[in-house]
Nucleic acid binder design. Structure first.
Lengths: 136, 136, 136, 136
DNA sequence: GTGGTCTAGACCACA
DNA sequence: GTGGTCTAGACCACT
């Protein structure tokens, strides 16, 4: 499970984690029936408290995205709520809008932003190569 | 003063406001010596509590970005702290990184994202024409 | 807010509290728009941790029964979810069934149980007179 | 052995099972010396994990209610602990109190509750006729 | 003052 | 081992 927390973002980390799990469900990175890391595992991996993860799993369970089986583990629900996944994809639009709005105030244009975007993609790709197998 | 609050973003609204004021100072949208809207005005405009605006102005004053003149109003400081501008542009980098990271999980590539960015720019431009001169 | 916790019941106290609030919404004991006791107040009153109350309010908010206004307070939602209130009333049937099942194994009949029920009602009434105004 | 589990009740299922066995011992539904179903049988019958039953039997053995004969089975103890029976009946009182308390908040009176109780008794009786001799 | 997030740690229930 | 409840307490955000 690739989740990255950005403590400087101002967004509560429970929410960051929840959104990334939602995104990965929407994109098919994790499929219905897949087992998620255990509360303790993920907590350790992200260096946060167990309760933090627990609450994320709880919320997503209420949303119908996950399924918690007592004493067994946490799984992606068999039938993901329709429409919610669509909403998820729309969210990206919203975030792009937000970015563009801010960037424009700084006097940057679409082309400059796109350049930044491409750079970021390249760096991300490079970063992931380095990690490769070692981590897991 | 063009400030837009997104309560659904999860970022504290005081932080959203502060960041947008910083951005506009850095970009020159508001210049040293300019007078900012009064606490009451801005609070009403954004439909938030006056104390929320008050604390934003306080914080930015401590940073050296604003100047509060007792009985008069709040102004952009005459000498903006060095490095503000650079810091501001760096922030955009950070946000681009965040976006790219999330978008990537959804299976989108750099080109798709750029297309979205350009669309957003165009829509923003169109939207601003409609408004014409701001009501401030 | 009259809520009584029974630690010996084996039911998590968060759930006990939540059920009693639901019941009071269903019965009209508290009406839409009413303000609930603050998290801290109720926590103190019931001698439980603040987080415990917080989680109860959170869950009921997700259910659409309550509304939390940041920095202001927690209120009964204006439009209580229809059907949920009906479900609430049905719950009493379920509990009666449970009781009867157990009682029957003990060899008691309907009449004996009814006698107990009436006694309990009388004692409850007596107990509430004693309290009367002093508490609030 | 007639045991019914209600997973939605919030009471731990191990406790539900234990209480029902205690009740049946107290009421004479099972007598001293009677053999209880094996751990495996009961686990299968109730569709719970064997360990769950195991722990219930363990607990009740410690209480002196049951006796586990290695390699043979689990039996109701020859000499039931004194006071068990009384304690059992007291428990019913407790549950009646709980019910009455909740029901009262809903604005129901003693008579309405008694009517429900009688209905439940009749339905229970009807249900048990259909089953006839238990499959054990 | 209000609600909200997070941590640390104890202890319980289920497989 | 898994998930789940509860406590205690720090600190943040909003009215």
């Amino acid at each position: 499970m690739f989740i990255r927390i950005d403590p400087s973002s101002g967004m509560p980390i429970t929410r960051q984690i929840a959104e990334q799990i939602r995104t990965q469900c929407a994109s098919g990175a994790v499929a219905p029936g897949d087992r998620l890391p255990s509360v303790r595992q993920l907590a350790q991996e992200l260096a946060v408290n167990q309760n933090t993860i627990l609450r994320v799993y709880e919320r997503l369970t209420v949303e119908g995205l996950l399924e918690r089986r007592h004493g067994d583990g946490t799984y992606v629900a068999d039938h993901l709520p329709v429409g919610q996944m669509k909403a998820q994809r729309l969210l990206v639009r919203t975030e792009v809008d937000r970015l563009v709005q801010r960037v424009q105030t700084l006097g940057l244009g679409a082309d400059e932003l796109c350049k930044l975007v491409k750079q970021a993609f390249e760096e991300l790709a490079a970063g992931q190569k380095q990690k490769g197998a070692p981590h897991e």
